[in-house]
């Protein structure tokens, strides 16, 4: 699957749950939203090999 995160693209070649993907990217489910097309996915949902998803980081710095 193709995963876009902060302008970078990561590839994974097996199905996994959203929360496993976040773990691989070392991201907290508390601060990220995973989007597939128009659909917003929860942590428990499965991502298939052919999926294209975008990981949106909700955390922002500065003040």
């Amino acid at each position: 699957m193709k995963v876009e995160y902060r302008g970078q693209v990561f590839e994974f070649d097996r199905k996994m749950r959203v929360k496993d993907l976040l773990e691989k990217l070392n991201l907290s489910p508390e601060s990220t939203i995973v989007v597939r097309g128009d659909e917003i996915l929860t942590e428990e949902e499965w991502l298939e090999e052919e999926d294209q998803v975008k990981v949106v980081s909700a955390i922002s710095g500065g003040m």
Binding site: I33, I40, V56, A58
Partner: peptide, 10 residues
């Protein structure tokens, strides 16, 4: 949380 605000906006 930030995530909740981001989700509302999206």
């Amino acid at each position: 949380t930030e995530k909740q605000v981001a989700l509302f906006t999206i």
